[in-house]
Amino acid sequence: MKEDCELLLSYTRRGDVPSLSALVRRHAVWMQAFLRGLLPTVADAEDAFQETWIRVIKAAGSYRGGSVKAYLATVARSAAIDRLRRQGRTISLDADEGGGASALEDMPSAVPTPGERFESAATAEEVQNAVRTLPDGPRQVLLMRIEGEMSFKEIATELDVPIGTALTWMRTATMKLRRLLGGEECMKTGN
């Protein structure tokens, strides 16, 4: 099976469309999950998915080696942010802004009560909602880390923050998620 970079370069250098299609299929799942975590609706995420690949096609020569997944995550994040801007929303890098505690309190149906957490946290929808309630900075770091599989160094560079900040936001994200999803119980269910 061809490596990601071979497929990408095969398209960018020789215009090999089947290689690009193979790349799109290979990265479809994580990229959609990534975009769903950043954007408010599934439709937004699907449109941003298309926009991401259009950008990859147009900026065919911008890939400079390294992890293709990290490159795609960077392009996808940029497409998501632009989409939010067009909708009059923003993604803030302030860890305390952008749908943090207040949004969390406003979501009684999405966020389970302590007694309900065990079962409800096992559903994908609840996890998605929990992720969306995270403040923007920690949410982006979490998604870039677990879906984009980017290193903290890459994340810090992409977000233009010190690496210590990226690490702190990851910690903040996991602590908040643990609280939202019911701690150890949900993890036992998920495994």
Partner: peptide, 10 residues
């Protein structure tokens, strides 16, 4: 936790 979240998101 992150592995669990990743599984659920996908």
């Amino acid at each position: 936790l992150t592995a669990f979240v990743k599984d659920r998101l996908e």
